[in-house]
Simulated scan of single mutants.
Amino acid sequence: MKKVEIYTDGACSGNPGIGGWAAVLLYGQHRREISGGESETTNNRMELTAVIEALKKLKEPCAVTIYSDSAYIVNCFHQKWYKKWEQKGFKKNPDLWKELLALVQAHEVNFVKVKGHSDVELNNRCDELARAEVMKLKQ
C-alpha cells in the first residue's frame, strides 16, 4: 500500500460566513496543494471538506496519515464519536460526515492532531491557502 501524508485546514470569516479549505498531499517526492472555498459555510464544514477533498484525490487504497488541527475531526475518529452520531442520524453536517466515513473505509487512515498556528510548517501552509480562498471570495 502506498503511504500518503495529508495536512489539512479550514478557515472561516464569521461562523457561519465565507470559508476556505486546503490540503497538502505528500507521496514520496511528490507534493500537491489543493484548496477551495464556499460563500456561506462554517469552520467545521471547511475542516471536513479539506479532508474529504484530499482523500478524493487518491486513486487507489492507501495508508494515509492525516494531520489536522481540528479537534472536531481528530477526536471524532480517535474516540469513535461518529458511531453514536451515525446512530442518531448525524445532527450536524450529515452530508459531509457520510462522505468522509465512506472515504475513510476505502483506505487505512490514521488521524494525528497538530497544534494550529504553531511551528507545523505544512499545517501553516494549509492555513495560508484556506485564508487565501476566503479572501478571493470576499472580493
Rank of each mutant, 00 (worst) to 15 (best):
S39L: 14
Y67H: 10
A71Q: 15
G17T: 04
K136F: 02
S35L: 11
W21N: 02
N93T: 00
Q29D: 15
L48Y: 02
G36W: 00
K115R: 04
V112S: 07
V104C: 10
K80I: 07
A11G: 01
E86L: 10
M1W: 04
V104R: 00
E99H: 08
Y27L: 15
V114P: 03
K59A: 12
S118F: 09
A102R: 09
A71K: 14
D69H: 07
Y72A: 12
P61Y: 13
S118T: 02
Y27C: 14
C126Y: 10
S70Q: 05
E33F: 12
E86P: 06
A54T: 01
M1Y: 10
G37Q: 00
S70H: 03
C76L: 09
N93R: 06
L25T: 05
C12M: 11
E86M: 12
F77K: 06
K138Y: 08
T42C: 08
E128Q: 15
K3E: 14
G89D: 02
L26C: 13
K84S: 14
K57Q: 15
R125Y: 07
Y82R: 05
C76W: 01
W21H: 03
M135H: 14
N110W: 11
I34L: 13
N15S: 01
I18N: 01
T65Q: 04
I73H: 07
N44D: 07
N123Y: 04
A23K: 03
H117C: 02
K113V: 06
L48T: 08
A63F: 04
G17I: 04
K113A: 03
L55C: 04
M135P: 01
G19F: 09
T65H: 10
K80S: 11
Y67K: 05
K92G: 06
E40Q: 14
K92L: 14
